Amino acid sequence: MRVEGRVVTPTGVVDGYVEVAGDTIVTVGTGTPASGRWVVPGFVDMHTHGGGGHTFTTGDAADAREAAAFHLRHGTTTLLASLVSSPYELMRDATAAFAPLVAEGVLAGIHYEGPYLSQLRCGAQNPAYLRDPSVEELEALVELGGGAVRMVTIAPERPGALEAVKLLVSHGVVAALGHTDATYEQTLAGIEAGATVGTHVFNGMRPPHHREPGPVFALLGADSVVCELIPDGIHLHDGTLAFAAQVTGPDRAALITDAMAAAGMPDGEYELGGQAVVVADRAARLARDGAIAGSTLTMDAGLRQAVHAGVAMVDAVRMAATTPARAIGLAGEVGALAPGLHANLVVLTEDLRVESVMRAGSWL
């Protein structure tokens, strides 16, 4: 099977085709007539809490399956199911419920965003559930997941955080730094301990200051760290998005949705981590204090926003697929149009709207 168009490869755009056999890409060729259609790798969303009226945060497997299906229709062929801060029992039960979905390939893994986060920078995380990192909890959860736990976000200034980061890394789990009031030096200590991702950089963090750069400068400046960026025009001004992408380059910036259940749904009242959320004009905010509570973004809309902000198409695609795939350890499987990788791709119209989605060699 051949899919023709303006093919976005890791190194540039070619007027050509992607040839698929079974569930694998076998050739990326050139020489077909120019087309207005874009052919890009399936998006990889390493941070999403739900969508289409469904959520990952309650640990319900049927709901998780529907949330993944919603994002698949928007071109996301690989995603992590992100939980929010919650009691250990919910983390345990969600891990047990989602592990079969990871084995099936519906999910690429589980991401715990919390509960080991800063009270001061908790954002929409439920402050009632925040606590210091527990090596014992993490050991038990990672063992229970049997490889399903892929990333954990921690505030590096909390007692026990560095030990937790080291433990995660020793088990092959990605350690991310976020929802943090850490100093520049405390953030660097987290990176030295092995953290390789900055969770939605700028958001849920001590803001940078020229005499106290804090976590933002430490993460943007660290060669070993991939910085998540939310390209919805709400979490980040387009100028901030473009600036951050220029500082990191496309190999260290990952577009994420941070979507909640309200993505793709009408304005109204929703729930996140046991807290009421009001959605109005695309923005999701906590009812109690107006804090931004995730997003209503999809990855195709995020790609359009990044290009609108001035990020080159090839770079934006790397940030939406190639870089996040590498960040969560899947670079040899997904995230690019290259021979030998899974046949996950998205056909976009000239104005970057989803026309069709292929996952594992089958059209959606």
Rank of each mutant, 00 (worst) to 15 (best):
G249S: 01
G233D: 13
H209C: 14
E143R: 14
V165A: 09
L177V: 05
P208F: 15
A222C: 05
I234Y: 07
T199S: 12
P231I: 08
Q186F: 09
E143G: 13
M260R: 05
L220M: 12
V216E: 05
L220S: 04
G146K: 01
A164I: 00
R206I: 11
G160T: 00
A195C: 09
E192F: 04
D238M: 15
A254P: 12
H179N: 01
R211D: 03
S170I: 05
H171L: 14
A261R: 11
A161Q: 04
A262I: 09
G249C: 00
K166H: 14
L162M: 02
A245F: 10
T240H: 15
G190V: 06
F243A: 15
L241G: 02
A193Q: 06
V197H: 10
L241T: 08
L219S: 05
S170V: 09
A195G: 03
I230T: 02
I234E: 15
F243T: 15
A189H: 01
L188Q: 15
Q246R: 15
H179F: 06
A222F: 10
E143W: 08
E163M: 12
G147C: 07
T187M: 13
P213G: 08
G221S: 02
G214D: 08
E163V: 03
R206V: 04
H237K: 11
L177F: 01
L162V: 04
V149I: 12
A218G: 00
A161I: 06
V197E: 02
A164P: 02
T180H: 01
R211N: 11
V174Q: 12
M205I: 00
L219T: 00
L168V: 00
G249R: 00
S224L: 11
A261M: 10
A254R: 00
L141H: 09
G190Q: 14
A218S: 12
A253H: 01
M151E: 07
L144I: 06
R150A: 11
H171W: 15
